[in-house]
Amino acid sequence: MPVGLIDDLKGKAQHLIGGNEQAIKDGIEKAGDFVDSKTGGKYADKVDAAQRGASDFVDNADGRPETAPAAEPHVAGEPPVPGVTRQPGL
């Protein structure tokens, strides 16, 4: 998809969401519960992840840039996390 189209769709979504955040989040929750009930919870982890993503989009639809989650520090014996430095002795 061209970037301009994505930005246009995001702008339209932000406009539609404005003032209706809680109703939309309630709908997201009900839709996920419906899917879980129809699939016997077989895909509950994926449904929950989709619900979180959709709710996060609604929360961040005010036009502010989303903040990246904090990276976890490197633990000895595990591959290092790019961009994260760990101080000796920690």
Rank of each mutant, 00 (worst) to 15 (best):
M1S: 13
V3T: 14
V3S: 13
V3K: 15
V3Q: 15
G4V: 11
G4R: 06
G4N: 15
G4C: 12
L5C: 14
L5A: 13
L5K: 13
I6H: 14
I6N: 15
I6R: 15
I6P: 13
D8Y: 11
D8F: 15
D8S: 15
L9P: 02
L9H: 11
L9E: 10
L9K: 11
G11C: 05
G11F: 10
G11D: 07
K12R: 15
Q14H: 15
H15F: 14
L16S: 11
L16Y: 08
L16T: 06
I17V: 08
G19M: 00
N20C: 10
N20A: 10
E21F: 06
E21K: 12
Q22R: 15
A23W: 02
K25G: 05
K25N: 07
D26V: 01
D26R: 14
G27C: 11
G27N: 13
G27H: 09
I28E: 03
K30C: 02
A31Y: 06
A31G: 04
A31V: 07
A31L: 01
G32P: 09
G32M: 04
D33G: 00
D33N: 02
V35K: 03
V35P: 09
D36A: 02
D36L: 10
D36V: 03
S37M: 02
S37R: 10
K38W: 05
K38N: 04
G40V: 00
G40L: 05
G40A: 01
G41N: 09
G41M: 10
K42T: 04
Y43P: 09
Y43I: 06
Y43H: 14
A44T: 12
K46M: 13
K46P: 00
K46F: 03
V47E: 07
D48S: 12
D48Y: 12
D48T: 10
D48A: 14
A50K: 01
A50N: 09
Q51Y: 03
Q51F: 08
R52S: 12
G53T: 07
G53Y: 04
G53C: 09
S55Q: 08
D56F: 12
D59Q: 08
D59P: 01
N60I: 07
N60W: 05
N60E: 10
D62Q: 07
D62R: 01
G63Q: 09
G63M: 05
G63P: 01
R64G: 08
R64A: 06
R64Y: 10
R64E: 15
P65R: 08
P65K: 09
E66I: 11
E66H: 04
T67A: 12
T67H: 14
A68D: 03
P69Q: 02
P69F: 03
A70K: 14
A70W: 03
A70D: 12
A71L: 09
E72Q: 12
E72D: 07
P73E: 00
P73C: 01
P73R: 07
P73K: 02
V75H: 11
A76Q: 02
G77H: 03
E78K: 14
E78Y: 11
E78A: 11
P79E: 13
P80G: 04
V81Q: 06
V81L: 06
P82F: 02
P82Q: 08
P82L: 00
G83A: 00
V84M: 09
V84C: 04
T85P: 07
T85S: 13
R86W: 04
R86E: 02
R86M: 05
R86T: 01
Q87D: 14
Q87Y: 11
P88M: 00
P88V: 03
G89H: 04
G89Q: 02
L90C: 13
